[in-house]
Design a protein around this nucleic acid. Structure first.
Lengths: 228, 228
DNA sequence: GTTCGATTCAAACGAACGTTCGAATAGGCT
DNA sequence: AGCCTATTCGAACGTTCGTTTGAATCGAAC
């Protein structure tokens, strides 16, 4: 927040503001003001607002995906060969949830939450260039985890596994984004700042969903059957 | 698309464009052009862009929440008293997924998808006024389903149930938003236009996650334990 | 001390934004 | 016909956006 170079300060400020307001609703003037930099610095260091957004994402996604794969590999070596579903899920979810752990700790307690929110928010953000950028970053990791889950869940169709990976990503992203709304809704019954509890809850839920029996193939609701 | 009054045409166009680009990234000029209306018509009929966004949401949320509660009540009456978790989940998920079913059918096959995307997108959208508006609309329905799930899941803590409702909402919203990205990623292995299959997959996943055992309370990861 | 590349700065650019206004138009009522 | 209300329209408002420019400033190398 104080002593870094301008480029990093801009990345930090952009990360925070994108987390709070989203890409389209955040202006370069907000960012440079928060970063204590000149307005022109963004275009000087990054070229454009779009490139800045990509840089903000890229700074976090790489390490996260690296740690995901590292954890997944560690699972394969520790056990005989087959990893438990919950462990695979945890290898996938923990890195983004614990993103703050790998980052400068002096930023205070709100830092991890802010990072998480940025990640959740921007992963549902719209601009097509961000969409394709994220898809590219996810392709390899997604395939690796799909294979691991398929091995841990014999009998499940590939389509079902892909669907459920998507559900897990959604649950994670939405939670990171709206956790304080949930805290407010439940009268602080759910505490989003307790990352350990959140991770456990999310892993338990996702593993349970992953392991659920596949629905029957054919089914028609009310058109042919007079059920009610 | 053709014969309705201006107010409805604007609502339809805004719904579609908000679904595609989000609130902040969609301009009133895009909306009125798509609607075949004059730019000033938005402010005449709705007062402001914010009020238009609220109207777009309100038109769909009311019927959806009504049908959710109606399905939930139907469950309570049909069975002895206790509904299955999957049935409660389906009562919660089917109305937004099948939103298009209650709407003008002549719009074509893409219509339902578009509606779904709008719903998924705007439920993760940022502007604070939309956030609070959505939270207000969700409060009652959320409480009702929390109670129903608590009855169907004896032994689960209220916090766990709320967390998991949140996870389910996230899985749904993210899927509605990014389904075509998933289709592309998996080489059309997952077909988002097959609403029946999507509903079944999502219900199975969510019910499995809901029913999963709660994680143990205390747990510390790597700080105290030297597990690698 | 001077030179030179890298960075910062104030100022402005044209474009697009949400909103407003007053005149024009349409359609029912007497 | 004439009137009244509701709606539509073109045009402009002031503001803010992302980006560009050219001069000022810095820091090391010589």
């Amino acid at each position: 927040m104080s002593g870094a170079d301008t480029k990093t300060e801009i990345l930090d400020a952009a990360e925070q503001l994108f987390a709070e307001f989203g890409y389209a609703a955040t202006s370069l003037r907000q960012i440079t003001t928060a970063a204590g930099a000149n307005l022109a610095a963004v275009n000087y260091h990054f070229g454009s607002k779009e490139e800045l957004a990509k840089a903000v994402l890229a700074r976090r996604i790489g390490p996260i995906n690296d740690e995901r794969l590292q954890r997944l590999d560690a699972l394969g070596k520790k056990l005989g060969k087959k990893a438990a579903v919950a462990d695979i899920i945890r290898a996938f979810l923990a890195p983004p949830l614990r993103l703050g752990g790998t980052v400068n700790r002096e930023e205070g307690h709100g830092y991890r939450q802010r990072l998480c929110r940025m990640f959740g928010r921007i992963s549902t953000e719209q601009p097509p260039f961000l969409r394709t950028f994220l898809a590219t970053q996810f392709r390899d990791v997604g395939s690796r985890f799909e294979r691991a889950l398929a091995a841990a869940l014999p009998g499940k169709s590939a389509a079902a596994i892909w669907w459920r990976i998507h559900f897990v990503v959604g649950a994670m992203a939405h939670t990171l984004q709206n956790s304080e709304a949930l805290a407010h809704l439940t009268g602080n019954l759910c505490d989003p700042s307790d990352v350990d509890a959140l991770e456990d809850q999310l892993v338990a839920f996702a593993a349970g969903g992953m392991s659920a029996a596949e629905p029957p193939k054919a089914r028609r609701k009310k058109s042919a059957l007079g059920a009610r």
